[in-house]
Computed example of a mutant assay.
Amino acid sequence: MAADRQAPSILGFPHRPEWGPLAHRKALAGYLRRCRDHAGVAPRQAARCIHTSEATISRMETGRAAFKLADVEQLLDVYQMRDPHERDRVARLVQEAAKPEVWQPYANAAPPLLRPLLAMEPAARRIISYEPQLVPGWLQTEEYAETVIRAVHPTKPAREIAERVALRMQRIEMLRRAESPPVLLAVVDSEVFRRPVGTPGVMYRQIKHLLALLEEMPYRLHLQIAPLTVGAAGAIGHPVVHLRFFTPEYLPDMVYLEQYEGAIYRDKPSDSERYQAILNNLCGVANPASQTPALLEQALRTWR
């Protein structure tokens, strides 16, 4: 019976504005779903209680709908969740979930399929990425990013290109923040530093930028270079990003698989574990991070 099970709690999810609104919304969504299940209330019954549709309850419980505090409080009444500490935390999370997402100032330039990654990466404890073609977006210089974006979107107006570049430039700032910054482990194919993106000067300054970032953030940024000798381990063929969060009991791992015309997200544990194993294997056969500065210095000589 519901009364025999331990009641759900949201107290383990802190109010952390630097993690972004979507993380708070997803945590709250899962909490509401668990509260409804614990109370034995059907979605249709919950919908009637706040005069909405069953589809809206579904969107609320998956983090795809905005929350109104009055509706949430009414649902908690129906679910008999009366603990004042729980309800106070819920109110704070609802408030945080309503704030603009990190990408919204660049809404015209943020591709819809990229927005979930942009919104959730600030909440990550650890990010592992593999990039077989280019320097990862977080680590690009402005001129390198502009060259890449222009190549992919040759018909876009200059203003939109500039907005996309600005959006890409701000992503590194999460690694610089004082409160709970993510750790980024980026693995790139060695051919990335042989493939010309723009002029030799663009490549030279990009590699110098990477060296500077490694010196600036030795504990938050780890860069590994995968040589061709890694063989099949590096034959993934497309960028992969694996996010692990500070509160996995509220936010499960998320995998982002980039494709030329879109992206795919995976958050089922079986998918997450599979890509985690793939990336772990790649990290194991790539050159150790301790060798990266020397390898970058060697690549630098190519572009002088």
Rank of each mutant, 00 (worst) to 15 (best):
M1L: 14
M1P: 10
D4E: 09
A7H: 15
I10K: 08
L11D: 15
F13S: 13
K26P: 00
A29D: 06
L32E: 02
V41I: 15
V41Y: 00
Q45T: 14
Q45S: 13
A46W: 06
A46H: 00
A47C: 12
A47Y: 07
R48Y: 09
I50R: 05
T52K: 01
R59N: 15
R64S: 14
R64E: 06
A70R: 13
V72I: 14
L75Y: 03
V78R: 08
Q80H: 14
Q80N: 15
M81R: 13
E86A: 05
R87K: 12
R89C: 04
V90C: 08
A91N: 03
L93A: 07
Q95M: 08
A97D: 04
P100Y: 02
V102F: 13
Q104R: 09
Y106C: 05
N108L: 11
A110M: 04
P111C: 04
L114K: 02
P116N: 07
L117G: 00
L118P: 00
E121S: 02
R125Q: 14
I128N: 13
Y130L: 04
Q133C: 05
L134E: 02
P136R: 03
T141I: 09
E143M: 12
Y144T: 07
E146S: 12
I149C: 09
R150K: 15
A151Q: 14
H153I: 02
P154I: 02
R159P: 07
R159F: 09
A162H: 02
E163S: 14
V165Q: 10
A166D: 11
R171K: 09
I172A: 12
R177V: 05
V183R: 12
V183Y: 12
L184F: 11
A186D: 02
V187S: 00
E191N: 15
V192T: 03
V192N: 07
G198S: 07
G198I: 01
P200G: 01
G201E: 13
G201L: 04
V202L: 03
M203V: 04
I207L: 07
H209Y: 10
L211H: 10
E216A: 14
L223C: 06
L223T: 07
Q224H: 02
P227F: 09
L228Y: 09
V230P: 06
A235I: 02
P239R: 01
E249K: 14
L251K: 09
P252L: 03
P252S: 08
M254Q: 13
M254W: 07
Y256A: 14
Y256K: 09
Y260E: 10
E261S: 14
Y265S: 09
R266T: 00
S270W: 11
D271W: 01
Q276K: 13
L282H: 03
C283M: 15
P288V: 02
L296D: 01
E297C: 05
Q298K: 08
R301G: 11
R301P: 04
